[in-house]
Amino acid sequence: MRSWRILGVFLLTLLVSGCPKQQQGPGDSDLSGPGGAGGLGSSGIQDRNLAAKDPGQRTRERIEREGADRGAGGPLSDVYFDYDAFDLSTEARNALQSHADWLKNNSGAKVEIEGHCDERGTVEYNLALGAKRAKAARDYLVNLGVDANQLSTISYGEELPACKESTEDCWQQNRRAHFLLVGR
């Protein structure tokens, strides 16, 4: 579960003003990650559930393994949504019921719920819509008694389509919540 709560709790990984100004062509440099500099905690404590794997690595693997978006990927099937909507259909609820049963029987399993959109619409709006879809699926599972600590959410917006053709059939496959097993 996404665990940050209060927007006052911000880690400043690097102060922008402190960046070295080197004369160097764009793209030539080693791209430094945020981990190295350490955080200057401004206030409060940030707690985040430890994932089995660096979440950035997970995204990179998701990008590489295009086929994983299609068809049977793990025990939990995709749940589909209507266009520009994040409410759960009867079919979606039925699927989530069986997902909930599986998750309760496999209480060590951890799942990242990915919210996805079809290509129609703009990137930023679809990121927000994907977040709503992931949240809707997550909340339904929690209401069915799944331990919230088994679940995390991420929105991929329209960035990782399962199907690439511009057809209604394809779009339907892309408007989905995808359940990625990230630990057991």
Partner: peptide, 21 residues
């Protein structure tokens, strides 16, 4: 690094900085 997070990129140096956690 997971996310999605806001980042800043210095176009001259290529340095990427996470703006917020």
């Amino acid at each position: 690094h997971g996310g999605p997070y806001p980042y800043l990129l210095d176009v001259r140096t290529g340095d990427q900085t996470r703006l917020s956690s």
